[in-house]
Design a protein around this nucleic acid. Structure first.
Lengths: 101, 101
DNA sequence: ATAACACTTAAGTAGCAACTTAAGTATTGG
DNA sequence: CCAATACTTAAGTTGCTACTTAAGTGTTAT
């Protein structure tokens, strides 16, 4: 669900902003050429994916990044890439070892 | 565009398979409960994102992972996470340094 | 030649995703 | 109190996504 969440440019902009530190919904919305309900919907997707957590105090909701969900997505990619690159390395090694036949 | 590509479970399954090594379109399709044209469309998305490269020889098309595109997506996440975690570290440090006032 | 194989193209459809506007609910400062 | 603030809910629209089937195009084995 994390990749789904990161697939949208507006949501990536929100994550980008939150990487600098917590922000309110309005602060997230400000740079986004979009209505506030639109931002809320994106926020809901980010929260459902576990990438963002928010908490309401008084009338303002403050959002922050949950690093764990980001790590998980990061690791998914890293594992596949590592598998593939290890394969390429073995292939290269094999070619080197057999090149003077 | 990479996150968009990785957002779909069928496409992730294809990447998963390709991480083990190159495969033909039919091989990718086999475990996928989907018509071949459906698989072709997913493949097109993966290729457009740069995550997969394919080459046709004779009547078979062989697909493989392009690690560069995966690294790029991985780094996008890593950078944001690092930024956020560095922030948390600074905060923890600050709290430690001022805890005996 | 011709049949089987491995895609490929085209065209259509159902459902989802990303918005919108309008109206509503708590908080908070004056 | 009441107006402004900061979201929140509901409902509708539009466009895109993930499929499908049907009908190709080359390639290879017989």
């Amino acid at each position: 669900m994390a990749f789904q969440a990161l697939a949208d440019p507006s949501r990536r902009a929100m994550v980008d902003r939150l990487a600098q530190g917590p922000a309110t919904v309005s602060e997230l919305a400000k740079p986004l050429a979009m209505s506030l309900p639109g931002v809320m919907q994106h926020l809901a997707v980010l929260e459902a994916s576990g990438i963002v957590i928010s908490e309401k105090v008084g009338r303002t909701r403050t959002c922050r990044i949950e690093a764990k969900a980001l790590s998980q997505a990061e690791r998914w990619i890293a594992e596949r890439r590592a598998l593939w690159e290890r394969r390429l390395d073995r292939l290269g090694q094999f070619l080197d070892e057999t090149k003077d036949d």
